[in-house]
Design a binder for these strands. Structure first.
Lengths: 408, 408
DNA sequence: AGAAATAGTTTTGTGAAGTAACATAACGCT
DNA sequence: AGCGTTATGTTACTTCACAAAACTATTTCT
């Protein structure tokens, strides 16, 4: 470490403090929050202002004596990220700025099961480029700091989709397939498992603004069951990013056969397809049908849900025993039926826990969001900037230097 | 962060680089390894030499032209840590220096099941003080930088034993019970679950010297089954330090009843007690009897082991799916029978894994060690010094100032 | 013996944050 | 309105850690 890394470290500390508070802090308040002196904070803030990552608010009437501070905020609509999600029954794109404001979005309801990745990604890439152009037209100017692509898949590194059984994709490298218009954005792309990004969305109110006690197991269900681990507000990806594969945890070694070759996988009981089959329903977009049946008290639906709860209890308790977590957040399909599911889990999960005498388990449903994985992905890319403002500033300087070097 | 934290950060970087290499690096080599300049490394090393954390070796005949470098080593026998472990059938104490050399040890073979924590801890504390005094007599001088106490228990924070079913202890705070002679050492005490510390021992060759690819699930068996997670050479403790409770993961929801109140817990099949019962053996110290029967090809023993392997396959695969780990290290009891166990696990575990097509699972037995948890605990306390040499130096200065202020 | 090569030290320079004083801008009292 | 009080933000100067470069020391090779 040298002095310049000290500087960028403090730049980061200041930025994180401002984002964590959701903005509205003055320089003096930031100094108090970070332990740095007002002079140092002033200098760092002026750099963030120059880079247009932060903007100054109007003076506030505090009612206190003394010179009022100028509140600072994450800069609106100057730097933005694109979140993309592709799932079995829909795709979605969302553009979000550093403040967490959604600048624009598109949803495409369509079946992507057994689809052709080349065509799908080309269309999605074009839609992204169009959406970004629209947003840029409306607002004055906007830098795209990154894009994320959420897929129900095992992803290798941050680029390669190894296996997406429910889409019928394997070994797809999306970056090249999103097309020239997307490439022209010149934004880094993060390819990531959808449950991982949904979990990030569930742990934050806005980019860099982690909710209290953000240590939980996220369980999101769709056709399959995906899970992810949040510890201290951070996603635990595991070595290859495949952590949280709860869907194929064995809940009954003598149970139902699964497409994966094993027996008694959680997915065969608590996946959306499994529950719909057990409830005698036809698969459609969303969970409207199942919720309606449950609300009506349909015995087959209730039985399907009960069986799912049993399986989930075993798998979730295993995860909690292994990970030492005491909070579970349900997302997507499972959030939709949480009204019925959570009471069952609340009574059944502790039966399997070593420490149920010492600590309660908390169950929660994630806030409703049409495209939680796109949201989480956008958070990720925005936080790359907030967590490394120094790198972003240098990158931008290089970019504008390159532009100046190549006159139009 | 300020300049002094920059300094201590670099002190740490240098110390970690030296320890990671196992010593023997010259200042110039350290500079190359850390990216700092030779001048800076020189200054930092002189500080470490002054604090007696590092010592200079004799000149080496490299055969290369140019002035030969002076190799630096972790200082032997100047700073040491005490590792203590208490388990069902034995207790052990080990004193280890910064180089990883065992300066002295004691083993007490005795039954501690349903024991009185007050008496046990008093005796152990006295044994520790005696051992340290012995070592100090032999060597010139020695600072004790910390002590660790490993117990088969759920530990809260780093002090309180909440629940140790197999010892019959609950809500014990060991620090005060280890006695005045122990307190006179004036060393911080870390109380920790035994499997956690065994896993640390399994991930290192010496203090601060992490083995390659130190990402694994450690599974250690004794009366119960304990597990722990090592990721990137670091222990993942979970929020309360209870991570890795594999022993009570449900491997069969309709299985055998367990003392914990649940059914089909792993421990009921793969714990030492369960295996001994199934093999028709009487519990004794160690696993000698079981190993002998297995070697002789006794069918009951083989069947017991096979049933354990089945249960372990389910629990381990759940853990690997959830954590995205692809390596398992077996310790203690399970390491003793790994010759028979590992081939079974190698074929059965992948059946339950989502990514078994994409990645192999590696199984290993931990290196034999009479008291792995004491070793791991000593590593922990020694690494506190290596990872924060600046803090240690300040602490020592304060200590000697206090001594000077209170003349004998 | 002298050149080349490498190790470690010394000196000087740079840059980041701390310190302290000051300018600025509000409130409140007389 | 005028003045003191209080808090914010800025400026000039100091401190300190690391970088750069020159220098000394010690070895091998020719």
């Amino acid at each position: 470490m040298n002095q310049s890394s000290l500087r960028s470290q403090n730049l980061r500390v200041v930025a994180r403090a401002l984002w964590a508070a959701g903005g509205g802090l003055s320089r003096a308040e930031l100094a108090a929050a970070t332990g740095l002196t007002r002079a140092t904070v002033s200098r760092l803030v002026s750099e963030l202002l120059l880079a247009r990552l932060v903007s100054e608010g109007g003076p506030t009437d505090s009612g206190q004596p003394g010179r009022p501070g100028t509140p600072l905020h994450p800069a609106p609509a100057t730097v933005a990220a694109v979140g993309i999600e592709i799932n079995v029954d829909h795709a979605g794109v969302r553009v979000m700025d550093l403040a967490g404001t959604v600048l624009g979005e598109r949803v495409i309801v369509e079946q992507f099961a057994a689809s052709d990745p080349v065509g799908v990604l080309r269309d999605v890439g074009a839609a992204v480029a169009e959406l970004v152009a629209d947003v840029r037209d409306q607002r004055r100017m906007m830098d795209v700091c990154g894009a994320s692509l959420a897929v129900p898949a095992l992803v290798s590194g941050t680029r390669l989709i190894r296996l997406a059984p429910n889409l019928g994709w394997h070994d797809v490298e999306p970056f090249g397939l999103l097309g020239d218009a997307f490439a022209a954005l010149d934004a880094p792309l993060l390819v990531e498992n959808d449950a991982n990004l949904q979990a990030i969305a569930a742990s934050r109110l806005a980019p860099g603004r982690v909710i209290d006690q953000a240590d939980f197991l996220y369980v999101g269900g769709d056709v399959g069951v995906g899970a992810a681990l949040i510890e201290g507000g951070e996603l635990r990806r595991g070595g290859r990013g495949w952590a949280g594969e709860l869907g194929h945890v064995t809940v009954d070694p003598k149970g139902l056969e699964c497409a994966c070759g094993s027996r008694g996988c959680l997915e065969r009981y608590a996946g959306r397809r499994a529950m719909y089959e057990a409830a005698g329903l036809k698969m459609t977009f969303g969970t409207h049908d199942l919720v309606e049946r449950l609300r009506a008290g349909d015995p087959r639906a209730i039985k399907a849900m009960d069986r799912a709860a049993d399986a989930l209890s075993v798998a979730i308790s295993s995860a909690l025993n292994i990970l030492d977590l005491s909070k579970v957040v349900l997302g997507t399909t499972l959030a939709d039926i949480s009204e019925w599911l959570v009471p069952l889990l609340r009574s059944r999960v502790p039966e399997h826990l070593v420490w149920s005498q010492l600590q309660n388990v908390e169950f929660d449903a994630a806030a409703p969001d049409e495209m939680p994985a796109a949201t989480g992905g956008a958070y990720c890319m925005l936080e790359r900037v907030v967590n490394n403002p120094g790198d972003w500033i240098i990158e931008q300087q290089e970019r504008s230097a390159a532009l100046a070097g190549l006159p139009i």
